[in-house]
Design a binder for these strands. Sequence first.
DNA 1: GTCTATATTGTGATAGAC
DNA 2: GTCTATCACAATATAGAC
Lengths: 168, 168
Amino acid sequence: MADTPRQREILAAARALLAAEGEAALTVARIAQALSIKAPSLYKHFAGKRAIEVGLIAQGFAEQAEALERVGTDLVELGRVYRAFALREPALYRLMTDGPLPRAELPDGLEARTAAPLVAAVGGDPDRARAAWAFAHGMVTLELAGRFPPHADLDEAWRVGLSAFAPR
Amino acid sequence: MADTPRQREILAAARALLAAEGEAALTVARIAQALSIKAPSLYKHFAGKRAIEVGLIAQGFAEQAEALERVGTDLVELGRVYRAFALREPALYRLMTDGPLPRAELPDGLEARTAAPLVAAVGGDPDRARAAWAFAHGMVTLELAGRFPPHADLDEAWRVGLSAFAPR
DNA sequence: GTCTATATTGTGATAGAC
DNA sequence: GTCTATCACAATATAGAC
């Protein structure tokens, strides 16, 4: 997805734009502008906007997988890192999770690699891991969407949720 | 939000459009077209597109609250109904949950009414209820986004998750 | 309440020259 | 690899006549 140096530069510009101004700012024209070139020139490097997005998604998963692997199998710490990742670059997190996974265009094994620490942390049951993942994803998206009441104690909700999924 | 008959008709058309063709189809022009009028005419009834969306959001929450109240405090059944609601009108569910709640423009108490059955079902602890809600929301959004692997047993993940949040 | 007409801004994408 | 030029749309919104 990022074979050439120019492709890497384009992805870096797109990611910076996404982080700084959010999803709505991620347009072909704005990405080109950040690189001081014109929009049509981008099409020599990527097939279209979606290809750039897929590149960002792959990048995001690789970094997330790395961060989770560094944690190991401590469920509470996995939760902390998962939440921190999403809050650090909310727009990237949404891009990664809002639509169907472009599995065919992602590096082999990346999805499994990202999931592995959580599966281990809940005791090996994939269904339990999926439930715990849904909990974490729900907490993060509701927080990002500003859907919790202002007074809600999110740290406590995380604690309650993660301890509910601790291995038995 | 739907005081006049004409406003109610507009909301009904918008909702049908949303259900039939999804979020992207919900444009002022398409709503007007469905009513056989021109787009500018809508602005005599609603301040703008966002006001129409808020009307749909209020409608959705009222119906969801009703459905959950009918269930009572059976956590498994609440989960089933929550999921069914989201899957029946995915675009409406996303509209209801993707952004900040327009609390000021929603009927008083509607948010609390919607949450009440779940709070009771988990034993009264609001933090526990928020964690369980995050789990349900995460399950639903990941399913709608097509993010679970094709072979994943979602019924089992729901079962595991809900039993993890059952009152103790 | 509805209309016509218009303003303004934006989108992703392509052809073909250099 | 980059450019100019352009396409073909679509969006929300407003003014003013009827």
